[in-house]
Nucleic acid binder design. Sequence first.
DNA 1: GGTGACCGCTTCGGAAATCGAAACGGGGAG
DNA 2: CTCCCCGTTTCGATTTCCGAAGCGGTCACC
Lengths: 122, 122
Amino acid sequence: MAALDLFGRRWSLRILWELRAGPLGFRPLQKRCDDMSSSVMRQRLTELLDAQVIHQLPDSRYELTPLGHEARHALDPLVRWAERWAATIDPQGADHTDDQSAGRVSPPDTVGDGAPERGSAD
Amino acid sequence: MAALDLFGRRWSLRILWELRAGPLGFRPLQKRCDDMSSSVMRQRLTELLDAQVIHQLPDSRYELTPLGHEARHALDPLVRWAERWAATIDPQGADHTDDQSAGRVSPPDTVGDGAPERGSAD
DNA sequence: GGTGACCGCTTCGGAAATCGAAACGGGGAG
DNA sequence: CTCCCCGTTTCGATTTCCGAAGCGGTCACC
């Protein structure tokens, strides 16, 4: 349950996700996370730090701990599900070249709607 | 990313989790989810309904769709990780037989810091 | 030495999400 | 009819999040 709460916050999962490839500094990480507010970012970072999911390198960059990497991998099935999910509910034109949605993605309406969103799992 | 947003909301994962054992009505479900606000509950329910993760039975109870069950199972590794995580950072109060804490759970503070709220493992 | 760019991080006012409790109409039991 | 539980909506109060500006610091460059 604690985990559900920790990861149920707005950018926690995203941060975990963006850190998967390697350590990142504060501002770079912020940019990767859709330019989220630095205030909230610091907050999430602190929570994650406290949960020992990430830690800070001597050069002050943030990096996943072994525990953090496990969490990120534990997330994999969910990512795979997300892809299937996207394919199920949004099977039509997956062409959103003109997409300009910022941070907010809404739950898809229904099959047959024309409201594309970003479904890239990177 | 859309999934990260859908599940990044406050009670989404919890609802998914509480529905794992079978269909539940509105108020029962609400009680199970730490008595969350009915307003937010309705909102989450709508989002989940819209995302075709849950659906409503003729007797108006809520139930996971096949897609929803997949999501719940996709969550399994995360749950397993959570247990390991709890054991890693909170190895002393190793008695999680009881559980009735309120809504907010924070990253455990066992090691080093004195963060406020309490966490419970399920 | 001065300037500008990036850095980690904090502060603050306003917007949005969440809460909490009350209330509606309806169903079933006593 | 009354009492209790139900699903659901509404509304004011609180919490969280956002967005932008600012602080002190480093480093390259001129």
